[in-house]
Design a protein around this nucleic acid. Structure first.
Lengths: 239, 239
DNA sequence: CCAAAAGTGTTGTGATTACACCCATGT
DNA sequence: ACATGGGTGTAATCACAACACTTTTGG
């Protein structure tokens, strides 16, 4: 018969994998630690779980401290618990991934760390098993976004269909047919056409759309078969 | 700046949601506690995480203790961490779900608890938030099995296609067309036809199949579109 | 020889792809 | 006027559901 007195001290932490989207790239927010231990090393934002909060609360708190943002899309990813994963203490960390509109993000004042957005495929070396966390988060984002319309969380309120298409193309490193992509998005019923156009990236200009929030919130499984089959990919990007 | 000294004692546990399949039903293995606290109450099997093991190791250990089985299909489900979830101690529990061949299961000798298989939709009241864990596990099993061929883990080495079909029908509470089901399974390339037949449930008899293990292990995404759309369901069962 | 379940063949439908074409506009 | 990217139309193809049909064998 097991009893908790068997258990030596284990610390509980959370780490956040924060994704954003800007300049036609998906980005990851990491910090450079300004304090010991591991001063100068790159790391995900994280923190210890307090006695009276859940890991969800802890992750929200950490995220808010770093970005100033509340009510962000966040989801539990996985709990990492290898005895040697944290080289200083025995720590079990529950990882969360978050999607934010990068334009809403405002760096909070802090001397503790220096936050930087890295393109998702050019991240620096990270401490502990944080690289594993990022890889798993990327995989989960891809898997989930192929069935659920959650990439909207990365875009501003108003966006164009070519912008949306580019976002999907980044995530899957593939090209989609503009016609078919547009039809599929429209058929989801999630888009509300605006009267104005975005006129920077093309001469004709692309209409802005907003998300139909009622539909988005009620029907989180609308986008079926967007990227399910390999044949949907026209060709691997090689650039 | 946060430091681990802020953290009061939090215990780390694991709980296992163990699924089996027998008598044309999906079952859940739960225990009745033979010791205080909560003597006589139903609960998932669980245990505390030891200092030198991961939560995965802890879950495997707990599972082996209860069932005598090694190398079982197991997957991390979710970490439950609400401060009030365990009414005795502040405990964070990482839940794992496992799929076992119920015929291989042998009850291990133990006076500590009385394990019982319950049909998945007739489970007793469980302590703490274990009911939540079971519900999430059921949802995850359904979601995952619609894309990945993991239900084979619930069947014996040799099985027939009607058996497999019945398993899917149980999980989704739906009926599938035998012709289409059979074709889809064959087209996955995962089935190896045997020479003998199962002759209890029908006069004609149904051929046994074995799993193509090489393919199964290399290609964990073979079964696409088995249950993706609601239209695939002929009719809700009402029995 | 018939009932019952396994297993195969076939057809219509709807989704999807690939690609041609039209549109709006800044230079 | 023409190049450029946004946006629409459409034919061919493919996957799938539905269901009729054949097979096997115990009673």
């Amino acid at each position: 018969m097991k009893h908790y007195l068997d258990q030596k001290r284990i610390l509980n932490a959370v780490d956040c994998i924060i994704f954003g989207y800007a300049e036609d790239e998906i980005k990851l927010l990491v910090i450079q630690r300004g304090f010991e231990p591991f001063k100068g090393k790159w790391s995900l934002v994280g923190g210890f779980v307090k006695e009276n909060e859940s890991t969800e609360d802890a992750a929200s708190r950490v995220l808010k401290n770093l970005t100033g943002l509340d009510g962000v899309y966040m989801e539990q990813l996985h709990t990492f618990s290898e005895p040697g994963r944290d080289t200083l203490e025995r720590t079990i960390s529950t990882a969360y991934f978050a999607l934010i509109d990068i334009k809403k993000y405002k760096q909070q004042l802090s001397d503790d760390y220096n936050p930087v957005w890295f393109p998702i495929n050019q991240t620096p070396n990270l401490i502990f098993d944080h690289h594993k966390m990022v890889e798993l988060a990327k995989k989960k984002l891809r898997d989930k976004a192929s069935l659920h319309p959650l990439l909207f969380e990365l875009l501003p309120n108003k966006f164009t269909i070519p912008q949306l298409k580019n976002l999907y193309e980044c995530l899957y490193d593939a090209e989609f047919d503009k016609g078919n992509f547009s039809r599929k998005m429209h058929s989801s019923g999630l888009l509300v056409k605006q009267k104005d156009k975005e006129r920077h990236t093309s001469k004709k200009g692309a209409f802005y759309y907003k998300l139909n929030l009622r539909k988005y919130n009620s029907n989180l499984h609308a986008i079926l078969n967007l990227v399910s089959k390999p044949d949907n990919l026209k060709s691997r990007k090689t650039k």
